[in-house]
């Protein structure tokens, strides 16, 4: 690739159509997530309603960070999400 050949990508900038938005998901604006991991867990639970049965008793605010990480590992395992590695540079 020459130094001048890099193309700068772009997306059009329109929001998705209503039919593309999941209708079964609630509004999370009321959620007071204290950290990135809290918000990630909240989103995963909302995106996967079947998980709520298994993890419904978890009160994130009362958990320490290592317990939250263990909870996230469990959720990922149930969903088949493999752990991501840090990229080798």
């Amino acid at each position: 690739m020459s130094k001048k050949s890099e193309f700068a990508p772009a997306a059009v900038g329109r929001p998705p159509k209503c039919s593309q938005i999941r209708a079964d998901l609630g509004d999370l604006s009321h959620v007071d997530a204290k950290s990135e991991i809290d918000l990630h867990i909240v989103r995963l639970l909302a995106l996967n309603p079947s998980l709520k049965v298994r993890f419904r008793n978890q009160e994130l605010a009362s958990l320490d960070i290592s317990t939250k990480e263990a909870l996230l590992d469990d959720i990922n395992s149930v969903l088949g999400i493999r752990p991501l590695r840090k990229r080798k540079t």
Partner: peptide, 23 residues
């Protein structure tokens, strides 16, 4: 991008929808 969106190929599956991307 949005995280509460569906695949355009198989609309029962979730997909990230990129609204805006610019360099």
């Amino acid at each position: 991008y949005w995280l509460n969106t569906l695949s355009a190929v198989n609309p029962v599956r979730g997909a990230v929808y990129i609204k805006s991307l610019a360099t």
